[in-house]
Design a protein around this nucleic acid. Structure first.
Lengths: 199, 199
DNA sequence: CAGCGAGGTTAGCGGTCGTTAACCTGGAGG
DNA sequence: CCTCCAGGTTAACGACCGCTAACCTCGCTG
């Protein structure tokens, strides 16, 4: 894991705050003035960093999808041949949980504001998402050969729903600690797949 | 189950179309003119039926939460004493799946646009949602006594995420039929709970 | 058959929002 | 020291949107 030590750039600040605000109140529910205020500058100042409000959302969504896919590919490559499919599936689940727990606003945006994108950006995001899903489907079917491909795809989407539920778990603190939550989610995801695979 | 035979009222038409549009493009992304057009009247005509756009969303969300809670209470009462906790849990899961499959737009709204409500309405909806969750938590803990209350609550929220993933499953037709999908979801939900309960 | 209310219509107001224009400023480089 | 540009500022424009006002028109009903 690469740890950043240098300060975040203004662009990164903006993206982070925009993600939080978009997740809280929806893309159309947030004004550029608010985003600016959140980073200490005022509305139109944002246009020195982004061509428009749409571009911020696009960069966020493309970034999320790309990051998920890249991480999954890396995990798949790291384990290829050496370890069994079970271990790969565990690694995929772990990666997705880390993302869901560490970047809740992004997870929220990811399946909520996709339709607000320009056509070309939306196509790109959907393509990345599809690749990510297909990668999971292959691994899941290797672990549970009884699953048909459509069933496996449905199961994967459903498990994403399960893992992405983290924003609904107590807003902060009330849940039993990050480690325990991650472990609970992991067990439940495996249990859900196992139940789906007992055709 | 009560089956309606009479034609839907204009109010009901409006609510249905508004739900669909809100789910597709978000509350702020839909104009009153579009909602009107969807039922064949034009924008301001809606104000003969609702005091404002907010009121439509409020009625939808309060209706959803109330319907879910009422259904769950009924299922709990029907089985009380007679059947085991396992059967009650199965009944709850079945009811939630029916709702998720039959009213996808409402399920989408339910956890997406809550923050767009007036304070009083939002409090009411949250209270109904909380009661619904607590009802599930009690049943789940009866079936899996090893689960602590916080863990059970997290597990319930996560299973809701799983069951509410239906809008993400193929937009229509591509999934293996309603019955098979319902059964798959049911099995996965039970599997997830079982895995959570093996503390 | 007069009257009236339910349920529409169109025009338009007031506010908000994304974006652009025009201007300012501090610090780095020759 | 002059220049320039990155990164701000405020003012303002145009579009859009929720909502109201004013008006119309049926179908009941006394």
């Amino acid at each position: 894991m690469v740890t950043r030590t240098d300060a975040p750039t203004r662009r990164e600040q903006i993206l982070k705050e925009a993600a939080r605000l978009f997740a809280e109140r929806g893309f159309h529910g947030v004004g550029v003035d608010e985003i600016g205020a959140a980073v200490g500058i005022s509305g139109p100042g944002l246009y020195r960093h982004f061509p428009g409000k749409d571009a911020m959302l696009a960069e966020l969504l493309v970034g999320i999808s790309g990051q998920l896919l890249t991480g999954a590919k890396r995990r798949l490559a790291e384990a290829d041949g050496q370890t069994g499919a079970e271990a790969v599936l565990d690694s995929l689940i772990e990666g997705h949980i880390d993302f869901a727990l560490d970047d809740r606003p992004l997870i929220t945006l990811h399946d909520r504001e996709l339709d607000r994108l320009r056509d070309s950006d939306r196509k790109l995001v959907r393509q990345l998402q599809r690749q990510y899903v297909e990668l999971w489907v292959e691994v899941v079917r290797e672990v549970y050969p009884a699953l048909s491909e459509p069933s496996a795809r449905s199961a994967v989407h459903s498990v994403f729903g399960l893992l992405n539920s983290t924003p609904h778990l107590g807003r902060a603190g009330t849940l039993p600690g990050r480690g325990a939550t991650a472990e609970l989610l992991h067990r439940m995801a495996r249990g859900a797949f196992a139940a789906a695979g007992s055709d």
